[in-house]
Amino acid sequence: MLRFDDWTNPVPPADREVVALLPDDHDDQPPVLFVPGLGHGAWAFAEHWLGHTAGRGFPAHAVTPRAGGDLRAQVHDVVQVAASLPRQAVLVGHGVGALVVARALGRYPARAAVLVAPVLDGWAALAAALRANPFGTLPALFGGRLRLNQRQLGTGAAAYLERVDARPRAELLSRARLPKPVGAPPTLIVGSPDDRVVRRSALDRAAARYGGAPLLFPGMGHDLMLETNWTEPIDAILDWLGKEI
């Protein structure tokens, strides 16, 4: 309740890219806000999921948080965009974006939340990355770029590897406790047992944290929204949303 950080040193405003696709008739459904992970931008959702979500009647938005912002600034950006939407929003975060959403849930009473392949534990993600792609990962430990390969992100993401510019910050390894979501929104964890960035055990831990079991899509890589069979997870998410709200 005492937010001295925000009271004494508020996050300064910055440009945020927001991509939106609105269905023709969207009075009854809450808006969905997608939050991309490390190295990704709103484009990763604009590719397939945004259009599909709008096609099913949900106003669909995706935000690219400010470039070079720390976690606090990214959480601020997500909460600012969520609060700017006309109705209480559903937050969907992917990868590190799911960590941003998990933190934003402590600030903004989302209608519901979906954490897709969530990187909630930086150390587990680092261990997984070192195992799957040691040469791409090591430079990142010394402040360089994190190179992700096709085995990590999935075959569908192959065409986008060049666009992924991941520069992880040391704070991802902090063990800071996740806030308790305000307004107790229903929360869903989605992932793949074959994801080489977020392993099955990390998915189970994330799901246990939010009280449930993860919804699993075998055979997919980390970038579920760019995989060839991208419709399966988003359809499952929207079906779940339809039931929960």
């Binding site: 508020p10 405003p13 601020h76 600012q80 609060a83 903004y108 009473p109």
Partner: peptide, 15 residues
């Protein structure tokens, strides 16, 4: 000022 006046779960626009 704005940060000390807004609802804690619904910030005013930062602009």
């Amino acid at each position: 000022s704005r940060p000390l006046t807004e609802f804690p779960d619904f910030p005013m626009p930062d602009t």
